[in-house]
Design a binder for these strands. Structure first.
Lengths: 337, 337
DNA sequence: ATGAAAGCGCTAACAA
DNA sequence: TTGTTAGCGCTTTCAT
């Protein structure tokens, strides 16, 4: 058995070179106050010993862990995983690592997750829940570390966030549908009790109706499906309401509705027009392809992380509510190009 | 300005109750050697002070961080995100947090990632790359902490791993296709230089051919598409080879091929049969739906994490090479039920 | 430019 | 059952 070589510590390096811990620490941290010749010797010893600073000890001494927490509903959901990828890439760029936690949008679990992350002394948190209950808000506000929302928003812009202008996006999409003569347009949301759906998407939809002089009908708003399978069931409800167009908050749900209608003999876009809003691969995989609001998912994550790095550095933000531009992509599920 | 209340430390608790640090530590860690009345007092103080143990200090003192690292190609890929979800859920169950790193299957980045995770003193690592180059292997073997592969395999079973029997799965699927009279069956892989493709999927495919007495034709093996878009290009190559059936390693690629053929007037499954192998939602979203090998993705991640917990506890593993059962799901893209 | 020394907040022998 | 005392490996004043 080869003897298990213990990891070298800063002390080993110092001893080998014949300098103090402080000096080694300085060269490791790129502090200028080290004579070049000393620096070289230390570097050489570090290399020879294969010394790797222990991040935990460092974290304890410096009170910075270079670790952030990411609290999200579900990695498995493409929308969130794309946001996460943006977060991760920028985090890596700035030498942060990301601790991931899935909450399934459950507020209790979110509170627990945040508490746990704080216990691990993360330097900051990216929060991706669409919900933001009072307990979660309280937890965040007492966190003591910066938190930024990605792809979400807090009431009264209480927290830094990056997303798109959901109100306008949904208003525009709905208006276009109305312009084509639709009277019964379904709005498919994820849940009635989250701000992003209730205060933004729904509001945009309602504004469009109002401008067009059409009465709002709560029967046309659906919000009980979050999976493809559940979407099939909900699609039956849409059909029962004789809607002629639908605006959906999620691509999988949109495809689910699309397939359901087509499987029941409807023609899309002739009998039903559909617009979705995340533009994931699901929207180009379906036949016809789905017209979609195109949110810059990766960028939302990336920008949120960039904001967080500034906040963690104690920098002031000139703008805490960032709205990234979105585009509208016309594909086969709608009638006009 | 409200005075920023500093987080209470174990010392504050000890002082408040009038006991030593050790006693507080004992109750926090559930050590039995504490009189009930003392325990109650400590618990009360902890509650009143809102004391939360600092995990970093703990990690330094105990040499356990209750944090694991997850090294994966890309969170954005549904296959990996499902594995990750399995890992995360079990990790959480055992009180571990997961540090996530995307490598895009790049071996240099994998080495860097592992090195970095070790620096952070993770207690173990779940590795998901399909590739496993010598440098990565070397890094893993010198890690000093347990590593288990999820959805992947190492040559010579050198590392603990959990996955399915890819050879048999691909052999079976190919054999079924051959039985239906196909002579030119395309095998679509991700890359020729990774073990999972070259040593398992390809071998299964070849075995089936051999048993059927059909010569292997390298021209029918494709491995240059990893995205939906690239899949479209590659589909043209398949078409040029007049294949009548395809076995694909990934759902998005499979849908891409399916769509390409149908968009060019082919009928599926009449003119072309397709079988895919991950059974993600992409396979039920397409029309026709895709027949697929069904790997228990979530379970692979979950079982891998469970193995890792045992390893981290110093337990012996009775079986280090776990093959989970897979099923074959027949859908519209193939001709037989 | 370099070193000495005091922590960071906690665990873990070892004593008592 | 409880307390004392070293550390864990590093950063960070403060001297020199």
């Amino acid at each position: 058995m080869a003897e298990q070589k213990k990891n070298a510590t800063i002390y080993d390096v110092a001893e080998k070179v014949g300098v103090s811990l402080a000096t080694v620490s300085r060269v490791v941290n790129g502090n200028d106050n080290v004579r070049q010749s000393t620096r070289d010797k230390v570097l050489k010893a570090i290399d020879e010993l294969g010394y790797q600073p222990n991040a935990v000890a460092r974290g304890l001494a410096s009170k910075k862990t270079t670790t952030i927490g990411v609290v999200m509903p579900d990695v498995t959901n493409v929308f969130y995983s794309e946001l996460t990828r943006g977060v991760d890439d920028i985090a890596q760029m700035y030498q942060y690592d990301a601790l991931l936690t899935n909450t399934d949008d459950d507020q209790d679990r979110a509170v627990t997750a945040i508490k746990n992350l704080l216990t691990k002394q993360v330097d900051g948190i990216i929060y991706m829940g669409t919900k933001l209950s009072a307990p979660v808000m309280a937890m965040i506000q007492s966190a003591g570390v910066p938190v930024v929302l990605a792809g979400s928003v807090a009431e009264n812009e209480a927290l830094p966030s990056v997303n798109i202008d959901y109100v306008t996006a949904f208003e525009t999409v709905t208006t276009k549908l109305l312009a084509r003569g639709h009277q019964r347009i379904a709005l498919v949301l994820g849940s009635r009790d989250r701000a992003i759906d209730q205060d933004f998407r729904l509001v945009g939809y309602q504004r469009a109706l109002q401008e067009a002089g059409i009465d709002y009908d709560d029967q046309l708003v659906f919000a009980k499906a979050r999976t493809y399978e559940a979407g099939q069931l909900q699609a039956a409800d849409l059909m029962a309401q004789d809607v002629t167009a639908v605006v959906a908050y999620d691509d999988e749900i949109a495809v689910s509705i699309l397939n359901y209608y087509q499987d029941h003999g409807y023609k899309v876009p002739e009998d039903l027009e559909i617009v979705t809003s995340n533009n994931t691969n699901f929207s180009i995989v379906s036949r016809p392809e789905l017209s979609s609001i195109n949110q810059p998912k990766y960028d939302i994550g990336a920008v949120a992380m960039r904001m967080l790095t500034k906040l963690m550095n104690g920098e002031e933000l000139t703008d805490t509510q960032i709205k990234l531009p979105y585009t509208l992509i016309s594909r086969g599920s709608t009638r006009t190009k």
